[in-house]
Design a protein around this nucleic acid. Structure first.
Length: 600
DNA sequence: ATAGGGTTAG
């Protein structure tokens, strides 16, 4: 078998010319082939008598035999069996032309489950045929148009199911070029895969094409698209699609509304919970009943909005008709912990135990985080030990929180001991784990050791992220080495990392502190060249820098520029301005803003 | 086949 394969591609092209030129009765392609006895060969394949099969065809390549089978009009199931058998050799590659021929022959006799299984293996195999070549051979293979539509539909599905979403998307596009009509059976999973991979641009494209190509869309189609748009904050578009579906006679359901509510909750900004609440009212008005998940989304939204009081109100409302679950409690416990209300958080933990709900690792992490932030390390550690007693295992987040807390408490050895023990327990450190420790060393002014951690992390195959660099840049700046810090920007670019606002602001702050306003302004220019507009922190840093140099006129000019750009001064701005400018007789034009700030 | 929770930098 194997030694014959090397010549298979030559055979393929010779064969193609041959089948085109000769009449269809031609069954023998090479003069050396033994006479082809279809009934006998078919029987041997069907009964899987492979050794006997080989003795009959010992000199023929796979391509030759396959072509003989096709040309002799063998049963498609027999040919499929032959293909499957030849796949036992993992290095074997079927010529794509024959694969397409097999697909056609299976489609013509409507053996759909077999096509599905075959394509599943096909996309998983190492044979990386390009989507365009597959389409080309399918379209020129002279099969019925409908057969091709089915095959392509199943091909898209096979790609998506096997995590080759990009290829699935490409096949979707090609299907449009060739005019092959797809079904929602392929399109819905494709959309779902694209959402999971955050390819929302592609999701929007596929949705538009589904409408344009008149592919039947169902409730799932719309919900997947709406969910994808909500996840990236494109709420207006999501609402438009909600209207589209209504117009097409598919009313939104609870899932649709949950996605929208979640979108508004995560959007951030002022009044977001008000908008989320408005959607809730709308859904109730349409007689769609909120479920546990609706409430979980709202509760989490209020918690993240630092409004635990409202979250608790919604929680009470939920208990009237629905049963809170672990996620509900986790959101509340986390909300309470982030606001330092540890007793109440523990109370809720006890309540969930009374209701027969078992705290999971997320519950523990929320509580541990709460204690860590209050520097109550002893209790945090007790909770950490309790995880194992409860038959669970701490995960990388648990470790990261504790390591970070020990570092912030300047207990670097304890942090390092945990760092060591996590590997022993089979939890691999990630970039954050290193960032916490790098940050710890920088805080102690030990940038050298911090830098060594970065190298150590990369030697373990973990990539530094922009945060790693922000930490190091901040460390160098605080040590009065802003020039050296600026060199790290180039290192970032070399690694394909793009500096964020934080990176530039940190560096500017460094130069400002050194009194080097010229260098600080240069950084701003560079930042804006990179398409990042100055934000509140940028202005705060620069204003403070000029104030410290006594250049209050320039500081005042910057303050006005900030207001003109619609940036609302925050507490830091207020403090800088108050201490440095107002006390020295400057009356910056931020009266109204000042009122808001002093109240907040 | 669609929905929910926890860590790091200014």
């Amino acid at each position: 078998m194997l030694k014959l394969l090397s010549s298979s591609s030559a055979c393929l092209y010779a064969g193609r010319t041959c089948t085109r030129l000769c009449s269809s009765t031609s069954t023998s392609t090479t003069p050396t082939s033994p006479p082809f006895n279809l009934p006998l060969i078919s029987e041997l394949i069907e009964k899987q008598h492979w050794s006997e099969f080989k003795t009959h065809l010992k000199d023929s390549s796979f391509v030759t035999v396959a072509r003989q089978l096709f040309d002799a009009g063998a049963d498609s199931m027999i040919i499929l069996r032959y293909f499957t058998w030849s796949q036992k050799d993992p290095k074997f590659t079927h010529p794509l032309e024959l694969t397409c021929r097999l697909l056609h022959s299976l489609a013509n006799v409507k053996e759909y489950p077999d096509i599905r299984a075959f394509l599943d293996r096909f996309v998983r195999s190492h044979e990386n045929h390009s989507v365009s070549s597959i389409f080309h051979l399918l379209a020129t293979g002279g099969s019925q148009f409908c057969a091709n539509c089915v095959i392509v539909d199943m091909l898209v599905l096979a790609y998506v199911k096997n995590m080759r979403t990009r290829l699935g998307f490409e096949a979707f596009q090609r299907a449009g070029d060739y005019g092959f009509k797809l079904s929602k059976l392929a399109c819905n999973p494709l959309l779902s895969g694209l959402v999971k991979e955050n390819e929302i641009g592609c999701v929007e494209y596929v949705y538009k094409e589904i409408i344009r190509r008149r592919i039947e869309a169902d409730l799932f189609t719309f919900n997947i698209v709406i969910n994808g748009l909500c996840k990236v904050g494109k709420l207006n578009k999501a609402r438009d699609i909600t209207n589209d579906m209504k117009a097409r006679g598919i009313p939104p359901n609870v899932v649709t509304y949950n996605s929208l509510i979640d979108g508004y909750c995560k959007m951030g900004g002022l009044g977001k919970m008000h908008k989320a609440d408005a959607i809730l009212k709308e859904m109730v008005a349409y007689n769609i009943c909120p479920n546990e998940i609706t409430f979980n989304i709202l509760i989490d939204g209020f918690c993240k909005d630092e409004n635990v009081a409202s979250a608790l109100k919604v929680f009470e409302e939920m208990k009237q008709g629905l049963k809170p679950n672990v996620v509900t409690y986790n959101s509340l416990i986390n909300g309470l912990c982030c606001n330092g209300k540890l007793d109440e958080a523990c109370g809720l933990r006890d309540e969930m135990l009374r209701f027969g709900l078992k705290p999971n690792i997320v519950t523990y992490n929320a509580l541990i985080n709460g204690f860590c932030k209050k520097k109550r390390m002893k209790e945090a550690r007790e909770l950490f030990d309790d995880i194992r007693n409860q038959g669970m295992a701490p995960n990388v987040i648990t470790y990261n929180m504790l390591i970070d807390a020990y570092c912030k408490d300047e207990r670097m050895e304890e942090a390092y001991a945990l760092f060591h023990s996590m590997s022993e327990r089979g939890v691999s450190p990630n970039t954050s784990t290193f960032n916490c420790q790098i940050s710890g060393f920088c805080r102690q002014g030990n940038v050298g050791t911090a830098r060594k951690f970065l190298d150590e992390m990369e030697s373990r195959g973990l990539k530094a992220d922009p945060i790693t660099y922000n930490i190091l840049i901040d460390g160098l700046c605080k040590g009065g080495k802003s020039r050296k810090a600026e060199r790290l920007l180039n290192e970032m670019f070399k690694k394909g990392l793009s500096p964020s606002h934080v990176t530039y602001n940190t560096l500017m702050d460094g130069y400002c502190r050194e009194g080097n306003m010229k260098a600080a302004l240069n950084v701003r220019v560079q930042m804006e060249k990179e398409g990042k507009r100055a934000n509140i922190v940028t202005f705060n840093v620069l204003i403070k820098g000029y104030c410290m140099k006594g250049k209050l006129e320039v500081a005042n000019k910057l303050l006005n520029e900030m207001l003109e750009k619609g940036l609302i001064p925050n507490r830091t701005t207020y403090e800088v301005v108050k201490e440095e400018m107002m006390d020295k007789g400057f009356l910056p034009d931020i009266d109204g803003h000042l009122y808001n700030i002093s109240r907040s």
